[in-house]
Amino acid sequence: MDYDTFVLFFLNGLTNAMTLFIIASGLSLIFGVLRILNLAHGSLFMLGAYFAFQFTHWFGSFWFALIFAPLVCAAIGIIIERFLVRPVYGIHITFQLLLTFGIILLVTDLVRLFWGVSYLTVSESEVLQGATSMLGVAYPKYNLFVIVMGIFIGFLIWFLLSKTRVGKMVRAASSDREVAGGLGINVPRVYTLVFAFGAWLAGLGGVLAAPLRSLMLELDVHTIVEAFVVVVIGGLGSIPGAFIGSFLLGQLNAFGTLYFSRYEMAFMYVLMAVVLIIRPHGLFGERIA
């Protein structure tokens, strides 16, 4: 393989990895704090993408969509947390999966109702169209923008969790709910906040991914499975784990298609199986007692 091809595929893998990371980090964060495995995260991602389509269609601005679509997703997240997830905190993981899978089914058909089944496309802002030179290769500006956004989100999460007062409350609530309550932290509010932030991340991932692919109804399930694979590889609840997992899967998807395109759909499953057989709780996972 020559240098140009390598860089091209590497950057493609990185673009893929960063959208995955933005989604997976929200999933992992929600699990880490609320102990809820939220399959509906995939629905929020899909809604983010479809909102991106709708907002650019109505207002003619991708930037408008980038700012407001994730916020709408966060608001929907608050509704889901408040009315569907809160009544069942502490139930067995199986039932969490089923409940949130029920949400996926509901949302899929609602999207079908509003937007229909045909493929839709979203175009990025004109500023980000075209290519620029990167590592000696001409590469689409928009993809580079996505990579930068991914890294920025990584820093944002790190900063919020470790440097702010709210972040400290979140970490307290995630390590011991009762102690946190005793310290005067309003735990239910922290939970809602984290769920909303996670939903915002899912929505943001949806908007960012929208110009990279066409929108279709299978987007939610496809994405949530990928995000789950990433989170499980990295270890549930671990943000650095989600980052490494995204990176691995992104690169595998990019270079794998180059060599074994026939079995492309099995890549991520093989990767996950290998990781889990060697490390039963993922790369950075803690034991769930």
């Binding site: 495995l37 993981i93 999966l97 499975v225 789950f228 694979v229 499980v232 549930l236 079995y263 759909m265 099995a266 499953y269 093989v270 996950m272 199986a273 889990l276 057989i277 039963p280 709780h281 993922g282 996972g285 769930i288």
Partner: peptide, 19 residues
């Protein structure tokens, strides 16, 4: 494996069979 890790590994093998 336990719990969700079990579920994900069975999913992985199931999808390999599918592929």
């Amino acid at each position: 494996l336990d719990e969700i890790y079990f579920a994900m590994l069975t999913l992985a093998f199931g999808m390999m069979v599918h592929a």
